[in-house]
Design a protein around this nucleic acid. Sequence first.
DNA 1: TCCAAATGCTTGACATGTCAACTACTAGGA
DNA 2: TCCTAGTAGTTGACATGTCAAGCATTTGGA
Lengths: 168, 168
Amino acid sequence: MTDDTAPEPAPRWLDATQQTAWRGLLAIVSRAFPEFERTLKAHDLLTVHYQIFAALSEAPDRTLRLSELADGADMSQSRLTHRIRVLVERGEVAITADPDDRRAKNATLTDAGMTRLETIAPLHVEDVQRLIFDPLTPEQTTALADAMSTIGDHICQHPEYLNPRPGS
Amino acid sequence: MTDDTAPEPAPRWLDATQQTAWRGLLAIVSRAFPEFERTLKAHDLLTVHYQIFAALSEAPDRTLRLSELADGADMSQSRLTHRIRVLVERGEVAITADPDDRRAKNATLTDAGMTRLETIAPLHVEDVQRLIFDPLTPEQTTALADAMSTIGDHICQHPEYLNPRPGS
DNA sequence: TCCAAATGCTTGACATGTCAACTACTAGGA
DNA sequence: TCCTAGTAGTTGACATGTCAAGCATTTGGA
């Protein structure tokens, strides 16, 4: 009897340098990101809502088709539908039917929404500066941007490296 | 009438380099981390469970007091109580009363749990290598570790920089 | 000794995320 | 025209996260 299963390659454990980088990343995710959420929550917003505001504010006419908005803000359509509701109720986002495609809807950041974003954005960016960039020297920031953009580009340009996502 | 409120300082917007770094970080969080979760979920585990396994496997006697485990794995005690239940039911973690302090309980990674971790860990580390470190040169990895550990140390050593956390 | 405060953990209610239907509409070919 | 497949968005059930309240125990000081 021969074993026709492929032999498992030895695991590629993280070396010391990689472990250092990985632990730092975990610290950011487990401590800094919850801090950003607390600041937003103090103003009755979730991170989801900030992402919606940010994506719409950068779009032409502050308007995006809902599916484009979901893509641009990195969330599922379902989640968008659930969470955008409160923004519409508050009058900070308006949703209108698309005249050209009766399946589609467009979301627009209203003036009230823009005002809201202008209040929150400085608080959010201050959090990011304080927890992420303040401890770094300019050289470290440059090196971080280089590495991060390399990783980010690689992930976005190689979706085949990802497991199939359920429901999408 | 004089305005006695302090003037708002100008927001410290991100410069181009910082934006590059920030977008990369968001890409990692929104794409790579969900990928890690999908791999774990294919083996009936949540990230929470992996963190529990990892923390216990590194502890003396593979055992930690529950409150130490919650700290070490960066989660609230409440969340730990809720999510560790299934691991106990599966026999992968054992919980025993602490003989010295009758308030406390100790969690131990069982042999079955260790076997489980030895199955999953290579898959997880392969995900991390593939999505985070593979695109980087050795020099980029070194620079990333330097910046990340600087940020991580800063966050962990300056808890006064964080808003008060509810419930803790 | 007593008691108030702190600690360790659990519980349950509610908020949010996820996922698989589902409806409605559009596109494109027989 | 009629199908079939694909696309846009919604819905509801369930899984998970969050938070405040609660119980039991320990600590430390009056």
